[in-house]
């Protein structure tokens, strides 16, 4: 137990440093933009007849720190705001705090990506076992090649091909936004049905692009376990194939759970291309739009949120491994 607590403390400390680093990157990018939009806004407000004090305050609300003052003052202002989850105010959506924009967008990202990930995990793991056991045969070859290819093809290529096939050439599925605007939002059959219909292509894209990774990971994991002595021993003792199979699968799937936890962390930032192509208003599209609109507070906030989710997932994955693998628990260094 002590070991777990010590590891957790270490992870939290490191996660904190990471957040600091990323926040600092955001700060310096906001601070060093060519053209200095902050100073420009400040000047404009003063020209508009605002007192320097009030103008500085207004800019601070927008960007999280005052346009005047030393770099250190600006930095501590910005960081102090972060501690209160004050990420500033979005410029492209006037008056909306960044945090609200982010939570609204996260909704559209989490569900499709989660479904896609779990779907590909299930299919990939099962087929990965086959690919390993039949690795000298035609089926294993086909599975491994299909896995490598799907793993290798970039998400946007896959998404574009699916759109071309299922939305342009054979128009059976929609690929324009998350829902048909004809329906009233709410709990009615039309709206829900439209939601599901619009989610099919994005989810399938996500599942296909993640599937290859699972097949390959499971295959190599099973191949490693197959070479272990205890499998040979079990076979020599004349155990039934199905029981040996269970031994193999149980040992081989362990490292995959860690990868699953890690990939859940990529959930928030992993769908940038898919959201752009399917016009899905999630975090990825938000990040792109904020970059294009030069809405720096929103951009910094989205980037921070995406990184934070990865850090949390890293910690969860490691703790999970600590609990599940006795070798790590007893204090041996597994890294």
């Amino acid at each position: 137990m002590m070991i777990i607590i010590r590891r957790l403390a270490g992870h939290l400390a490191r996660g904190f440093v990471m957040i600091l680093v990323v926040a600092t990157i955001s700060f310096f990018i906001i601070n060093n933009i060519p053209g200095d939009p902050m100073a420009a806004r400040y000047e404009k407000l003063i020209e508009g007849g605002m007192a320097p004090e009030a103008a500085a305050q207004a800019v601070k609300v927008l960007y999280g720190f005052q346009p005047t003052g030393t770099l250190w003052q600006q930095y501590s202002d910005f960081m102090g705001g972060l501690l209160h989850f004050d990420l500033g105010v979005s410029v492209s959506r006037p008056g909306t705090p960044v945090l609200d924009v982010l939570t609204e967008a996260a909704k559209w990202t989490v569900l499709p990506v989660l479904v896609g990930t779990l779907l590909s995990f299930l299919v990939g793991v099962v087929l990965g076992v086959y690919a390993a056991i039949k690795r000298t045969g035609k089926l294993g070859d086909a599975l491994a090649i299909s896995g490598s290819l799907l793993h290798g093809i970039p998400q946007y290529v896959l998404a574009l091909l699916l759109v071309v096939i299922f939305a342009t050439l054979i128009p059976i599925l929609p690929a324009d936004g998350p829902v048909d605007i004809l329906f009233d939002p709410g709990f009615n059959a039309g709206y829900i049905g439209s939601l599901v219909e619009h989610a099919v292509l994005p989810v399938v894209t996500y599942a296909l692009s993640a599937y290859g990774g699972w097949v390959l990971a499971m295959k190599s994991s099973v191949v490693t376990v197959l070479g272990d002595d205890f499998i040979l021993a079990a076979e020599l003792r004349g155990m039934k194939r199905s029981i040996v199979f269970r031994y193999i699968a149980r040992n081989a799937i362990l490292p995959l759970f860690t990868i699953l936890a890690l990939s859940l962390g990529l959930l928030l930032g992993g769908a940038v291309f898919i959201e752009k192509i399917f016009n899905y208003p999630g975090l990825g599209l938000l990040l792109i739009d904020s970059v294009n609109d030069r809405d720096y507070a929103l951009m910094g906030g989205a980037f921070l949120l995406i990184t934070a989710s990865i850090i949390v997932a890293n910690i969860v994955a490691d703790l999970f491994y600590t609990v599940i693998d006795p070798r790590v628990r007893s204090g041996e260094d597994a890294t």
């Binding site: 490191r14 440093v17 990471m18 680093v21 990323v22 990157i25 955001s26 990018i29 060093n32 933009i33 060519p34 990529l266 930032g269 940038v272 990040l287 792109i288 970059v291 030069r294 720096y296 951009m299 910094g300 989205a302 980037f303 995406i306 990184t307 990865i310 850090i311 890293n314």
Partner: peptide, 21 residues
Amino acid sequence: RITDMKLTIPGLPLLLVLATV
């Protein structure tokens, strides 16, 4: 430790952010 930190920062979002400068 430095390598791990670097690996933690998501590549594509970082590139998007860098694209502003």
